[in-house]
Design a binder for these strands. Structure first.
Lengths: 234, 234
DNA sequence: TCTTAATTATATGTATTACATATTTACTTG
DNA sequence: CAAGTAAATATGTAATACATATAATTAAGA
């Protein structure tokens, strides 16, 4: 394996540092050479020689790839290509206290859109066991207007199960990622109208639709179930 | 500003390196001290003293925060807190040639769910100008079954406008992020049935619903419009 | 011969030091 | 007082040394 040294002339530069270039170059390299998940990439020292920069720079570039989830490094073994768990990556920058309000609101909306829109996947993949589980979850729910904290827990349990049924790992991860944001958004005063725990369509109602209805009916039911959230936004 | 040195005892360790701990500690610090967007954080040398580790380690930790978009660093000035553009962060790890097939499929599904689910936001925020623009886009579309490349461009133009109407920046960024994936997925042989450019509901049909219909009708129309994509998945 | 324990080699992880570079601040000089 | 120049400062890059974990190999023991 071979490669030309990094071009240090400041043609494009002004904003791109040496590490920037090296990072880009390494990613190019990995693609050119058709590296696949599981392959070990060249050692740090090999890269320093190939690109003609110090190990410090190589390490910072590799560190970035690591943070992005593109590689994992192990002592003695070197670094290997990994398929990034992109939502895990995202979760790293999801610090509610740092995200600006607009983004928080955006994410909140995104969640609502997803839950309404994933009806077809749920219907395609749901089985009798899932229905049973959902019924059990519903049966364990307390009567309306109990402990707030308690209420939210059951809310999460139910909706998490739906994500699970979707059998879409990225979607599941996305939800896990969004959960911590909700508390924050709920308490941030970001939404206009205070929360109203009365729901137009209950969890039980949703299960009924899942059992006997259609994706179309479910979308509408879910939309109604989330009515309060939508109202708070508009 | 003050802080105890990092605890180097390998209590939890086994997986967490020194940089891991330092990274966590710095984020804690920023939260404890209520740092807000725009604030400059302590200099690298201050941090080395505060935490009792080398500048190398501090730099690697800061580098991570930089990659996550939590800070930006400028020479002489130091590092300042920034509100992360989370989808820009995400785009960094979105290398289609590295993502595994399952994730690609997941993302494809995620897009479909979003477009069906965002009906309420579109309806809430659409205005007459938007309708006009959409009509113009539709009027510029070629007859069915023309150049494939051409067809896709118009497809993108139309759907991008919908995201725009949603007035949700994160959603827009998300779409921009997903676009490059589609070519890849389309050509990857990942989906079962070949693409069929015939659509059950046309773009013109969608605009009609936007003008005279309801969110509910629009969800169904969009679901039908995307029928081929759903079919290819199931 | 096979299993297990000790040894070694290797690549990443951490530390230290030095110098480069950009940019703000302060100073000098006309 | 303005303009240009020098100093100070914090990040960026480099080089080197040692620490540490672990894969690979070899040696020991059953």
């Amino acid at each position: 394996m071979n490669s030309l040294p990094i071009d240090r002339t400041e043609l494009d530069s002004g904003n791109s540092s040496l590490v920037d270039k090296v990072e880009t170059r390494i990613v190019e390299l990995l693609r050119e050479q058709q590296f696949k998940v599981g392959d070990v990439i060249p050692k740090e020292m090999e890269l320093t020689e190939m690109l003609g920069v110090s190990r410090t720079v190589i390490r910072e570039a590799l560190m970035r790839l690591k943070v992005m989830g593109l590689i994992e490094s192990k002592k003695r073994k070197g670094s290997v290509i990994t398929s990034p768990d992109i939502f895990n990556v995202l979760s790293k920058s999801m610090k509610p206290h740092i995200l600006d309000q607009e983004t928080l609101k955006d994410m909140f909306e995104l969640r609502l859109a997803l839950e309404v829109g994933m009806a077809d996947f749920i219907f395609q993949r749901i089985n009798d066991n899932d229905i049973q589980e959902l019924k059990e979850i519903v049966s364990r729910e307390p009567e309306a207007s109990e402990e707030d904290r308690f209420f939210i827990e059951h809310e999460i349990a139910f909706h998490s199960k739906l994500y699970e049924i979707s059998n879409n790992q990225s979607l599941k991860n996305f939800q896990k990622l969004l959960l911590p944001l909700f508390d924050y958004v709920h308490n941030s005063g970001l939404l206009k109208i205070p929360v109203n725990s009365m729901r137009y369509v209950s969890h039980k109602g949703l299960v009924d639709v899942l059992e006997n209805g259609s994706p179309e009916l479910f979308r509408n039911a879910m939309r109604n179930h989330l009515e309060n959230h939508f109202l708070r936004l508009f």
